[in-house]
Design a protein around this nucleic acid. Structure first.
Lengths: 135, 135
DNA sequence: CCTTATATTGTAACTGTTACAATTTTATAA
DNA sequence: TTATAAAATTGTAACAGTTACAATATAAGG
């Protein structure tokens, strides 16, 4: 029983079902940025009645509540992570691995942003990671 | 006949077919960030034998050659634009419209980027656009 | 415990994308 | 130009990710 999750749900005014808690727990401390399918396959043994639709529903809810973030990459599927500290993503063009990198500071000094109310900034970097470069 | 495109193809060592030129021309000066389907539907009347697979092929080629950029949004489809001047994207949470905003400067002063060879940086902003805020 | 609301499930449909073999077109050189 | 090879385009079918939806199960509140 994850007390932190219970309180988070109270904050967000959603009910802390066991399924939701399982999805949350799986994402917590996970750095793999899993897909829906990966989350489903991981949880299925522990929750035998789990449906993939439920995973979709929960992820949509968590996204709406800003509990998690969708990661949009070049793959045509979404990946997910907990919305904890702000950071950038680096995707390796060679191996496809997604790395978490420190938050990058973004400057808006040039103007042209008037009237846009920016709620979220996402920095996606691409290139070659250390492992692949050394090969 | 787009001479600029011919030269671009010579640079990239690809052949400047009429279909490819049409896709290029459609994207040139277009600020709508169209999807594959939109590109296909737009060009079909002028190129009656056009196949959607061809559009996919051309976009994949252009992406590989850095002629165009894929835009990865929350939608589960890709959007495309010419790879001209570097700029940021702003997607409105209300209306879904994607705006081009000036390039934002990114600082990597915090460290933690050692070993990563960054070839491309993408800044995606999200929030509420002027039009939607005024409603 | 009853009633209502909410969460979960399974199925089927839908959409974006890719694989692939066949055909057409283009490029090249005799 | 014509023959030949290479490359581009096409249509079909398959595939993968996602969504819609009605039915069922579970939880919450009186």
């Amino acid at each position: 029983m994850n007390q932190q999750f219970r309180e988070l749900c109270k904050d967000k005014n959603i009910s802390p079902s066991i399924t939701r808690e399982s999805v949350y727990d799986y994402l917590d401390g996970n750095e793999t940025h899993p897909t829906v399918d990966e989350i489903y396959k991981e949880l299925k043994p522990k929750l035998p009645t789990l449906s993939k639709t439920t995973v979709y529903n929960i992820l949509k809810l968590f996204t709406k509540e800003d509990i998690i973030l969708e990661i949009n990459t070049r793959e045509h599927k979404k990946r997910y992570e907990l919305n904890n500290e702000d950071h950038a993503h680096f995707t390796c063009d060679m191996c496809g691995q997604i790395y978490d990198l420190p938050k990058v500071e973004v400057n808006y000094n040039l103007g042209g942003f008037n009237g846009f109310h920016i709620k979220h900034e996402e920095v996606n970097l691409r290139g070659v990671c250390k492992d692949c470069r050394d090969k």
